[in-house]
Design a protein around this nucleic acid. Structure first.
Lengths: 230, 230
DNA sequence: AAGCATATTGTAAAAACTACAACAATTCGC
DNA sequence: GCGAATTGTTGTAGTTTTTACAATATGCTT
């Protein structure tokens, strides 16, 4: 093991965030319009270098805030990417994170060297630079795995939501249809959500009951470990 | 985004491998006795720096071969660790991988700067340097998750194995007991293993039927995606 | 008031899971 | 050679979960 700095301490590390949002119909991903080289003037995942004096996980949070204004977000590491030629400026590793946000709660706002920030439907993203396509695929797959075994779907929904909305979220993420009766039966049997007592307004049809996510019960389940396989 | 090399290109990246093996009774992990600083003369996960001109995933394979002689191993990335002070020599990220091997198939042999290589029962590992304890915990958890949903257990078993052995493997990894009848029923219903026609020899009791893993069927299942939840 | 749009709910059959114990095959000691 | 010891092998009934399937309810619009 040769620790001479000249030999090894010449790499850079970035974080790239795959931010998922759900607008009630479609699963979307947040991209920024790059105002800096390389790949200036291209849409890309919000990502940036990790400062030498900042912990990796902290940096993921900071990068996301700095480029998009988003704070206090559910985030999780996805994967490390380290092909030799993945970055034109040298040996740059990237650690990918995914984030889930309630679209309604946040006003996304480009800042720093991001010129714009915008939501794209997951199946209509423009060409992406670097290995960002591969990164997105990894993140999507991880979201799929996770949403089947943990109730993270709530991170993507508004505080009050209808059963139809949550079913459409699951259908969007997992790319398949569920039988409404069976889906509701299973979902309600977990006792993770409860009625708010309110109903939808301003809809031109029978208004749906609004539900909320029961944090207490969720935490109790988390402690014991449990499965949310739908 | 500031790309000046002076600012960002000063990090190093290592890979650390958590190599799991199963000896028929216990789940074990492979450690090396470090013959180089830092933490010389301590048992640690086999890991080393990633050369600047080598892809990350390739490097994980090379590092494992270079330190232990192991080749052609099932490996998968676990997680990236990047706390500022995790390495005494500077900003060193590490990407953890786990590997599964059939203990009988390989003769582990320390080389390069590893002075020894030895198997430790998973619950009797010595004190580990760096953040290697955390890394091992992550790897164990990932092994647990994976073995429940994919038939990777076979990577740990000899080519011919008994149903008791595979049950003991699952019990060791998941740290719980299974009912023998129900376990076998479920396992056999997947049609992933078949009888070899041979039986155990040299045992002082009724010899068990030896089974083998059916690669064709496994590949067919993998294509469709499937669950191996036991 | 009729029509439209979406919300809501039950049931029966099939499949999967769980709990549980007796008999089988081999070696060993006598 | 035989009984004891050890581990291997197998079935069933009760319970729970999953699946497939369609009629009615509620509010709005015209």
């Amino acid at each position: 093991m040769d620790h001479s700095e000249s030999k090894h301490f010449r790499a850079a590390v970035t974080v790239d965030n795959v931010v998922f949002g759900f607008d009630g119909k479609q699963l979307k991903v947040l991209l920024i319009y790059r105002g800096a080289e390389p790949f200036k003037d291209r849409w890309a995942l919000p990502g940036d270098f990790v400062p030498l004096d900042e912990n990796l996980n902290q940096s993921a949070i900071h990068v996301l805030r700095s480029l998009t204004g988003l704070e206090n977000i559910y985030m999780e590491q996805v994967h490390a990417f380290g092909d030799v030629n993945r970055h034109p400026f040298g040996r740059v590793y990237t650690i990918a994170y995914y984030a889930l946000i309630k679209v309604e709660d946040y006003q996304v706002q480009a800042s720093s060297w991001a010129e714009e920030a915008a939501w794209f439907p997951i199946n209509e993203v423009p060409e992406l630079p670097f290995d960002h396509v591969e990164i997105m695929e990894f993140a999507k797959q991880q979201l799929r795995n996770k949403i089947r075994t943990q109730p993270i779907g709530f991170e993507l929904l508004p505080k009050h939501f209808t059963l139809t909305q949550i079913q459409e979220l699951y259908e969007a993420v997992l790319e398949r249809k569920f039988d409404t009766r069976n889906f509701r039966k299973k979902l309600l049997s977990m006792n993770l959500i409860s009625e708010t007592g309110y109903r939808q307004t301003d809809v031109s049809h029978r208004p749906a009951m609004l539900y909320k996510y029961d944090t207490k019960r969720y935490n109790r389940f988390l402690e014991r470990g449990f499965s949310f396989d739908i």
